[in-house]
């Protein structure tokens, strides 16, 4: 890191009260003596606020896009609003439709090479969240889970991930638990977790969609797999090219 980058880190730690008493005193001394350092602190505060403002404006922009399909309730008679009930009916209808399509595809035995393709494309996702460097005795449950994952002890990893999920449904824990289930050939459980990640429409949508497609490939639900792959192929994620290739091979 460059000097200014290290200073920004120090200032952030200072403002977030993450320094020891000694380090804090050193920062305060520097703030009183070094005008550039003081200016950097003021810049940091403005940058943080500006980023927050940009995020807020982006959210308002997204809300405006939601407004396009909604009417003026001050003019409409009651009951015109889109209700949760109708959206649930649509979802169930979609699930039913997808189910019917899948059964038909399965019945006519569309493709026999699922297993080969799955083996060619499945690669367990590396642990980029919690690389373990500490001794075993001081590890948190999450670190223990990821250590088991790194050591390819996937049964232990699943056990620990489940314990974490009982307390909090973290998106990345669901995702890595699905990975472990896939290695253990427990694709039904993996599908459940990946669908949960996908429903959240969070930051792991592309990753979850790719592995969900592979799970469907494994369970020979070809249409469902294709459906997920088409979405990826049309998108601009890092999975787009792979999804295209796999679709062609199917």
């Amino acid at each position: 890191m460059e000097e200014k980058e290290r200073d920004l880190e120090r200032i952030e730690q200072y403002l977030n009260d993450q320094l020891s008493a000694e380090e804090r005193t050193a920062v305060e001394h520097r703030l009183s003596e070094d005008k550039d350092f003081l200016a950097l602190k003021e810049d940091f505060v403005a940058l943080k606020e500006g980023i927050e403002q940009a995020g807020r404006n982006a959210l308002r922009h997204t809300m405006d896009s939601w407004e396009k399909d909604l009417g003026n309730p001050l003019e409409e008679p009651k009951g015109e609003q889109r209700s949760l009930g109708s959206s649930l009916i649509m979802r169930w209808a979609a699930v039913f439709l997808v189910g019917v399509v899948s059964v038909v595809a399965w019945y006519f035995g569309a493709n026999q090479s699922h297993k080969r393709l799955y083996n060619n494309y499945f690669e367990v996702y590396a642990n980029v969240v919690l690389p373990n460097t500490r001794s075993n005795e001081t590890l948190t449950k999450e670190e223990q889970a990821f250590l088991a994952y790194d050591n390819e002890d996937y049964e232990r990893a699943v056990q620990l991930f489940n314990q974490i999920l009982e307390a909090e449904q973290k998106e990345y824990v669901l995702f890595y638990s699905a990975q472990a289930h896939m290695v253990l050939n427990e694709h039904a459980e993996a599908i459940e977790h990946l669908q949960d990640v996908l429903r959240r429409q969070g930051l792991l949508v592309s990753q979850a969609r790719w592995y969900l497609a592979l799970c469907y490939l494994h369970t020979k639900e070809t249409e469902k797999a294709k459906e997920q792959l088409k979405v990826l192929a049309e998108g601009d994620s890092s999975y787009s090219e792979r999804a295209n290739e796999l679709l062609q091979e199917m």
Partner: peptide
Amino acid sequence: RGDNAELQKVYEMYR
């Protein structure tokens, strides 16, 4: 966790 669809659902529900 960043589920925009859920936020949109809430937005539409009480709007």
